[in-house]
Lab assay of single mutants.
Amino acid sequence: MSDQEAKPSTEDLGDKKEGEYIKLKVIGQDSSEIHFKVKMTTHLKKLKESYCQRQGVPMNSLRFLFEGQRIADNHTPKELGMEEEDVIEVYQEQTGGHSTV
């Protein structure tokens, strides 16, 4: 019986991991920090939209990076291997420009 009891508790931990929340720091170019608590399985588009709304800027005017890689709207913290207190960097999107060649 103890084996049966242990097995469901392991499964519960697996389920808990799926719905687990982590805190992420979003740091802007001006070094301002906003902290977000997100589920591991939530699409990061929600975090990006919330950040842009707080900053009063359109979402397409900023780019969000985690460990140097651009974050897509459909990425989740779990897919990117994010952990508690990880940092997302935000930069002004640069458009235009010309070749110097």
Rank of each mutant, 00 (worst) to 15 (best):
87 V>H: 09
39 K>I: 02
48 K>Y: 01
31 S>F: 15
54 R>L: 09
94 Q>W: 10
20 E>P: 15
64 F>G: 02
76 T>N: 01
57 V>H: 01
81 G>W: 07
8 P>V: 04
34 I>D: 01
28 G>Q: 06
91 Y>F: 10
16 K>L: 10
27 I>T: 08
59 M>I: 10
11 E>C: 08
41 T>R: 04
96 G>W: 01
37 K>Y: 00
95 T>Q: 00
44 L>E: 02
94 Q>L: 13
74 N>E: 10
33 E>I: 14
97 G>T: 05
14 G>S: 08
75 H>W: 06
33 E>L: 06
86 D>Q: 02
82 M>S: 04
97 G>K: 04
34 I>V: 12
27 I>N: 09
77 P>I: 00
24 L>M: 07
78 K>C: 06
31 S>H: 00
59 M>L: 07
93 E>P: 06
69 Q>H: 07
60 N>A: 06
29 Q>R: 14
66 F>M: 04
65 L>D: 01
13 L>A: 14
15 D>C: 10
2 S>L: 12
7 K>N: 09
81 G>T: 00
87 V>W: 06
32 S>R: 12
95 T>S: 10
41 T>V: 00
61 S>V: 02
8 P>M: 02
35 H>G: 06
95 T>A: 12
87 V>I: 13
27 I>V: 10
39 K>H: 07
26 V>Y: 02
7 K>S: 09
8 P>Q: 15
16 K>H: 13
25 K>N: 11
75 H>V: 07
24 L>S: 00
18 E>D: 14
21 Y>R: 09
24 L>E: 00
27 I>K: 11
42 T>A: 09
23 K>E: 10
44 L>T: 01
83 E>P: 00
9 S>W: 08
4 Q>I: 12
78 K>L: 05
94 Q>D: 05
67 E>A: 08
15 D>Y: 08
3 D>I: 11
91 Y>L: 08
42 T>E: 05
22 I>R: 07
86 D>T: 10
84 E>N: 06
57 V>K: 10
61 S>L: 09
36 F>T: 00
67 E>T: 01
70 R>H: 15
87 V>R: 13
84 E>P: 14
96 G>L: 04
42 T>I: 05
45 K>Q: 12
82 M>E: 04
8 P>H: 07
58 P>E: 09
30 D>N: 13
42 T>S: 09
65 L>E: 02
59 M>D: 15
55 Q>V: 15
4 Q>L: 14
90 V>A: 14
92 Q>N: 06
49 E>C: 00
35 H>A: 07
73 D>T: 04
2 S>Q: 11
2 S>D: 14
89 E>S: 11
21 Y>Q: 13
6 A>V: 14
65 L>T: 13
72 A>K: 00
20 E>L: 11
18 E>R: 11
90 V>G: 04
14 G>K: 13
38 V>N: 01
37 K>E: 03
4 Q>V: 06
17 K>T: 15
91 Y>R: 07
58 P>A: 09
42 T>V: 11
9 S>I: 08
89 E>F: 10
20 E>H: 08
56 G>D: 08
27 I>Y: 04
36 F>Q: 04
17 K>W: 10
82 M>P: 03
44 L>A: 01
84 E>T: 10
59 M>H: 15
90 V>I: 07
80 L>A: 00
33 E>G: 03
84 E>I: 00
78 K>W: 09
53 Q>M: 04
50 S>W: 11
4 Q>N: 14
72 A>G: 14
19 G>D: 11
53 Q>G: 06
13 L>S: 13
68 G>D: 05
14 G>H: 15
33 E>K: 08
13 L>G: 09
22 I>A: 03
79 E>K: 09
20 E>F: 12
85 E>N: 15
20 E>G: 13
77 P>A: 07
33 E>R: 06
11 E>P: 06
94 Q>S: 13
51 Y>S: 01
20 E>Y: 14
4 Q>F: 14
10 T>F: 11
73 D>R: 01
66 F>K: 01
36 F>I: 04
91 Y>C: 07
33 E>Y: 10
72 A>W: 00
